[in-house]
Design a binder for these strands. Structure first.
Lengths: 341, 341
DNA sequence: CTGAAAGCGCTTACAG
DNA sequence: CTGAAAGCGCTTACAG
């Protein structure tokens, strides 16, 4: 059974396609009688407008694209949920693509979305992305672009982020306040702005408290698929190289959970021997033992906010107004649990 | 900057739109010279075909819809990942919608996807869905539909599932094999087929082992947003009502983790006082303490398989062949950990 | 209040 | 080897 078209309705009713179209959209210049007649038949025939045809005419797809590094991820799946919820409210559909932390894929996916003529794009960058020509291309086409969480400062578009530096500072300060004397850091990969900023917050907190910054107790993890294993490995290495460390600020909860698992197995007491602060407040951080002190990062809200901003820019563009970029910083909060004193 | 069209390329080259279109698609009846010329200019101008126009002509959208009860969910996010990965391989985009376990929303979303003229739909049902007219409508339009995980037996379409009854049986048998004498069950909501089947597997294992089935130690949870809390509440109730229970088979890991948390707090020893088997093998089940024995449910593979089947049916439809429905059952495995003896 | 006509950007059967 | 023409299903400015 092929979908019903306006033409079929028009023919059955012996009126023009124009009138049918206008009647369904409640144009004021159509008689009540005609409207009622058309609407009834449309309902009976289960008419659904062909989105392609509408889009082609109106140059609007009511669809946005979302590129995200990883879907199986507590934080990002909350962001997705927020975006989809907000998009649905405004009558938009969301096409989701996973970049797998690959710059090449990300580039290809931007191209796919542009072909698809989405009305706007939401993106959280892959770790590997250090070159942004593909993003500038989006903007060159006057297509609204909003970055969130993993952003590039240099790209001129709206951004929704948290203050990673401040949050990293708060996490480290908490370790200091609870008596830690030698604090290590498991940082994220080198490129992403947020792992840089969390690290800088860590460093600043140390210096502000007259504690020496020692690069030999800063460990790196890629925070991809192997986050949990990286946490274990770094913890193991740390115990071997620096058994005087009594606190660690860890870039991501999943890495922190790996570290906790390793410490538990080796009989290192948390927080007595070593205190740990994570980052992101994944659900599982509240149920492991000891439960993890961490920084709460509002994923759902970030998704909602990012879509709202994108929507605003889409509207601006529709009205031929200049698109105004905005940087929105969401609040984070330290969640104290059992992994710190 | 507006997107470049075929017409613009044609004008610049002083040839027809037809020729440009054919050249870009490597039709054999276009000269090599023309092809080279067209392709070069297309590249320079950064030409991207307008998907709406193509779709309108070809009646294909190269897009599929996915409706899922919940996105922030270890199992489902793995399914999504599998679907997207497979879709990308075949050049398809995926529009994701979350039904929030609501039948009304699900119905509305099916309608949205049909308007969008997606080439096919993948769905895992909301708990509340007991009426399937919206799904039959999809099939009435000859639109391929594949259900996965949360299915309705009565709907005539392809399905990708696990054998929940067998898995529930295996989980319960494991409790029996490890010495449990009185085994409770925390089942899922009443409607979904898989919570029914897991329950039936539990029941059959009891009977096959000459153990009495006692409905008073079967607790229900909705397994929605409040899974964790439901696990705690049920565990608390169980301790009050039936302190002779020494084993529980729990419908979902997240509920089981709630129960474990409650037992830990109340000083009930796992597995000495009570053994627990969960279902789904969420990542966090391996890191909590005690780690949770559970049934591994292959989410990523389920997503891949579901898309593959959908793709097959889309191809069949394109060739005007009859669509052949298939029920695919994926393997599960018991993962033994510390919550059972 | 109604409708003929143009056009969105493509594809493809057909003619030459 | 190339191109004119029709058409996919809509929307909307315009005429009557």
């Amino acid at each position: 059974m092929k979908p019903v078209t306006l033409k079929q309705i028009a023919e059955q009713l012996n009126i023009s396609v124009t009138t049918v179209s206008k009647a369904l959209k409640d144009y004021p210049d159509i008689s009540k009688k005609t409207k009622a007649m058309v609407k009834e038949l449309a309902k009976t025939l289960n008419y659904k407008p062909n989105a392609f045809a509408v889009n082609l005419r109106t140059k609007e797809s009511k669809t946005v694209g979302l590129i995200i590094p990883e879907i199986v991820h507590h934080f990002f799946s909350n962001v997705i949920k927020g975006i989809i919820a907000q998009a649905e409210k405004k009558g938009y559909l969301v096409i989701i693509l996973q970049s797998n932390e690959s710059y090449e894929l990300e580039k290809k996916q931007i191209d796919l979305l542009l072909r698809q003529r989405v009305d706007g794009i939401l993106i959280s960058l892959a770790n590997g992305s250090a070159e942004f020509h593909h993003l500038n291309e989006v903007m060159a086409q006057d297509k609204p672009l909003v970055m969130f969480d993993k952003i590039a400062k240099i790209v001129q578009c709206s951004k929704v982020i948290i203050d990673d530096r401040k949050a990293g500072y708060a996490a480290t300060q908490h370790l200091i306040d609870t008596g830690c004397k030698r604090i290590a850091h498991f940082r994220g990969a080198l490129l992403p702005q947020n792992s840089i900023d969390r690290f800088l917050g860590y460093k600043k907190a140390l210096l502000d408290n007259n504690m020496p910054y020692d690069p030999s107790i800063v460990y790196i993890c890629q925070c991809g698929d192997r986050s949990f294993e990286e946490g274990r490995e770094n913890a193991k290495q740390l115990l071997m190289d620096h058994d005087d460390v009594d606190g660690i600020f860890i870039n991501t909860d999943l890495v922190a959970i790996g570290a906790i698992t390793e410490f538990n197995e080796q009989g290192v007491k948390i927080p007595e021997d070593i205190s740990i602060v994570g980052f992101s407040n994944w659900f599982m951080s509240s149920v492991i033992s000891p439960s993890l002190t961490t920084i709460d990062q509002p994923g759902y809200e970030m998704g909602k906010t990012a879509f709202k901003q994108l929507y605003k820019e889409i509207q601006q563009k529709k009205k031929n107004k200049a698109i105004t970029h905005k940087q929105i910083v969401l609040d984070t909060a330290l969640v104290k649990r059992a992994s710190t004193k």
